[in-house]
Amino acid sequence: MIHLSAITRTFHMGDQVVNALSDINLHIASGEYVSIMGPSGSGKSTLLNIIGLLDRPDSGRYELDDRLITDLPETEQAQIRREKIGFVFQSFHLIPRLTAAENIELPLVLSGIPPEQRQIRVNDALQAFELKQRASHRPAELSGGQRQRVAIARATIMRPSVILADEPTGNLDHQIGAEVMALLENLHHGGTTLIVVTHDRELGARAHRQIAMRDGKILTDQTDDAG
């Protein structure tokens, strides 16, 4: 479903040119569980941002579900983000003045779904992520694990086909991090494509397919037979 060919992305920092991605070719099938690993500056986050349509490559082709994405106008890209992609961030990125339920509801609001339907779907999500008791709490009143659960609930409320997670456990302790990963892997078992960016080897090893990056290039790309 995700098809990248000859993707390059360069940044200009002062008079220095940084090749964040150079000539990336990658194919990820629907329902895969992929980890992208590498040291910071290896280009793994840039790759995730390009897959998530937050960033545009300087050259190359990106096809999502057999549709060429690279040259689509901004509004259509936003629509694809809304409907097909769910983001989970290291720092959760919840809106502090909204309650847990309102944060989860946001993508539905952006899609223009009527309030009655939103209510039902948000309630289901609160139930599924065991947040029922915390629905009317603001992020500041939630624990780290709860915040990330809210963020995952928000990422999945539109039932996207791809979940992109950028260091999803980076701000959580080991045990809570394991719980959050279990939640994400559970989504994968439900058929969602899961792509996790991390520099944590242990975490990366859980994925069935592991991609290692360095200096904007794919170093290794292994698939576990066991998976």
């Binding site: 937050l54 809304r82 409907e83 961030f89 990125h93 809106i95």
Partner: peptide, 16 residues
């Protein structure tokens, strides 16, 4: 700023 970035990530258009 971070909030605007998030809104874009979850599919808000510039117009929104």
């Amino acid at each position: 700023t971070a909030e605007i970035g998030l809104l874009k990530a979850i599919g808000a258009t510039s117009r929104d």
